[in-house]
Every structure is written in C-alpha cells, then in structure tokens.
Design a protein around this nucleic acid. Sequence first.
DNA 1: TAGTGGTCTAGACCACACG
DNA 2: GTGTGGTCTAGACCACTAC
Lengths: 242, 242
Amino acid sequence: MSTASPTFSPLYRQIKRLLVQSLGAGEWKPGQAIPSEVELASRYGVSQGTVRKAMDELADENLVVRRQGKGTFVATHDEEVHLVRFLRLFPNDGQAQYPQSRLLEVKRARAPSDIARVLDLKAGDGIVVIRRLLVFGGEPTVFDDIALPASLFRGLDAATLTAHHGSLYTLFESKFGTRMIRADERIRALAADEAAASALEVPVGTPLLCVDRVAYTYGDRPVEFRRGLYRTDKHHYRNSLS
Amino acid sequence: MSTASPTFSPLYRQIKRLLVQSLGAGEWKPGQAIPSEVELASRYGVSQGTVRKAMDELADENLVVRRQGKGTFVATHDEEVHLVRFLRLFPNDGQAQYPQSRLLEVKRARAPSDIARVLDLKAGDGIVVIRRLLVFGGEPTVFDDIALPASLFRGLDAATLTAHHGSLYTLFESKFGTRMIRADERIRALAADEAAASALEVPVGTPLLCVDRVAYTYGDRPVEFRRGLYRTDKHHYRNSLS
DNA sequence: TAGTGGTCTAGACCACACG
DNA sequence: GTGTGGTCTAGACCACTAC
C-alpha cells in the first residue's frame, strides 16, 4: 500500500482483481456459490465493506449474481433471462420469442490474418468455423458465421452442437469451460449476396444488418469472432444509450 | 421508514429521487456545483455514506460528474468527450473526427399519431421538425430527421441553429433548459430512397442504417424523436454488450 | 490550511432463505 | 435460529484543489 504510484489502485480493486483471477482460473465454476463476503474478507485480511465494493463492481459487470439470503454465485448463461443475453434483436411488434437454431456447417480451418488478429492468434492457427441460422417463428432471420480458436474448443463438432439445447454460450461454458463475459459489436448495412439471400430467404440485394462481434472471456481475452447478417423487416436491433 | 410496503425503497434511493427532482426542477443548472455531500447529508438528515451511495448511482447514470477535491457538478453536454456522446458512429479506420452539421430545414408541424405516441403528446400537438446532415471530412454520412415538442422549444428556428456551434443537445440544454439524459435506439437496414440518396450522395437503393432514437430527459420524459439514416461504407455503428 | 470527494473500517440492524 | 446479502451509520484517514 505504498503511496500513489502510476499503477496505484484502491484496495477494493485489488481484491476485485484477485476475484476475477479466481473466476478465470475456474476456482469457482459457473452457477456455484462464491465464499461469503465475511469469509472472503478474512481470507484477504480486509473489511467486509471492501469485499462488498469489489463485489458490487463484479455484479455490475455480470460476472457474479447476488441472491439475498442465499449467497453470491458465479454468473451463468443458463438463466432464462440470459439465454439470448447478447442478441439485441427484437420483433417490431408482439412478444419476444426464443429462436430456433439451424446448424448449416461446422468445419476446421486455418485462421486468415484478419480473424487471427482479432482473436489474438497467429495467421494459420487452427480455428473452428460454425455456420448457422436463427429462425424466429418459422422465419429465418439471422445468418451467423462464427470463428473460434480450435485450441479452446477441441471436440466441438456437429454432433455436439445438434445434441445441445440452449444458447451457444451455454454450451461453450458448460462443455468447454469458456465463459463469454462481454462483447463489442460493429454494425453496418449491406446488400444480401447470394449465399445470405438464399439462407435468409430474401431477394439478392435486400438490405441487411451486418453485425461483427468480438466476444471476450475473463481478462479481456478475445475468444470468438462472429459475423451475423440480420433480416430487419420484422425485427430490429435495440440499444440503450446513456 | 415503515416496514416493507409494495413500494419500499431504501433510504439512499429516496435521497436519489429527491436529487433527481431538484435536477429536473433546475434547482442546480448544468455545469454548476451541487452542494457537498456533508451539506446534503445534514439537509436530508442522513449520513454522508447514504448521500454518497445515491450520488454513486447518479454518477453512473451520467447525471452528475464528480471531481475530487472540487465538488460534484451537474452533467453537461458541453464537455469535449461528450460532444457527440450519443452518436455511436466511428470511422472504419483512422481517428474519429467531429462532424460538421449542415442544416437542411426547420419547420413547425402537427404531430402525426405515431410521433405523438412516442413523445407522449396528443396527435395534432405542435412539433418542431429539423432536417440536417452530418458531414465527416467532407462526406455526408448521417441524414437526420428530428421531431421535438414545440411547447418545450419555443423560438427554435434556423437562425438559432446556424448560430450555434457544438452539438444539438448542448443547444437544447443551454438555450431551452431541456437536458437529454438517455436514449433508446432501434436499428434496421433499409434501401436509400431518392431523398436520402441525394442527401447522402449515394445511388438510390444503397443499404443504409436506419436508426430511430427516442431521447429522454429527467424523469424518463420523452422529448425527442429522431430518425437517422447512416451511410456505412466508411463508418460503422459501435456497441458494447455486457 | 481548509474543503471536497475517495477509501477503509467496524458495528448495528434489516430482509430473506433454509432447515 | 443461523447465515447470507442489503442498508445505514460514524469516524478515520487519504488525495486533490484552491487560496
């Protein structure tokens, strides 16, 4: 606790960093309870209030979930609300509904340089490529092209994917130990090419949203690049600014 | 401090509500300092910690800005960083630059029912309509169509707009006392019609982002509806998910 | 030096879940 | 009842700003 160095950070942030390390190392698994605040306080030799402030930030960032009277739990993609937490697509009218996923292709490949760059790999490193369609009420709406580092997803194949029910991120965290924490998206408008048009059942040239997403796990390590093409005739992408 | 009623809220939230009321009533103007935490604590008869927790949330929501050693200030759209706080458009490569605004039209009109609905007006109530273009480095990129309740923006005309330098929201808060706090956006892809194509200097049919925004002031009162058409050949809309 | 926000502590009590 | 997180308090000290 020396005086302010260029890298000074308050105690509660140091505690937070330790907690994130433990989470990233898998010391506590998704869905499991974390030790209570008083226990962590005594473990780290700080007051409960300091642990609480660290935990406040972790809860804000959706790394943990607190349940009054029960404890604090490692966040999961399993929960109802979070099944499609990262999909910002909503119907223009009517109730939101869960999409069906239609798997189109799974293959191994070598990372081209642009994908290698965003995934922090070397060009030519192995990746897994998943192509799939999200279907809302019978209507194909999202055409996804997903790239993952092969090293983290050994054994991921069509059988695994089709056997799984729920979101991809649920599968990734339960079967491959990789939990997606946050993501950045870049959105453009483009005209459907032949592949997209036939998959989404629209005329070639139809304007689509092109959503490029990089998803990160603990410690801001990028572990997924995905390009999604969205039909927006009956749906829209929703965002809140503050 | 009665026991938990259906509308129970902790003390610090009650304090927060009082503070938001004062902000909304204009008791402290944008840019001005708010009374210190100890003063507010004694005013409301609570501890400094409780005021602090209320203020924490207000700072998170960008309603106030805290400066260590100086005080807490009502947030403003003036600050460098926030000049285009609500514009999520970034160049595909190169440094972000501030856009120039080119005013196309200002007029008074009657609110059609759809706009009346989102602005919480009655159909036929007076509105102000602004059409403008945002130009980045000489390239027209955003075509905005903005609707405001006339009752809140008396005297807003072309002269006022052209005389003003800085963002629209800076003008709204400094000249009309309406501060935009947050906004919701809905994004679609569509093909440029003739008006958009000529304004944005692209061929008719070019895919564009269509960004519908509703902006809110204190107390979640909607005070602006805006439809923006974005060229995304050299820019993209950026978003962070967590 | 005085005043502000920022951190940390210790302890009290409340609300909730579970046995 | 016991243990958990949630709130509230009071007081100490630190870091920054202004005079």
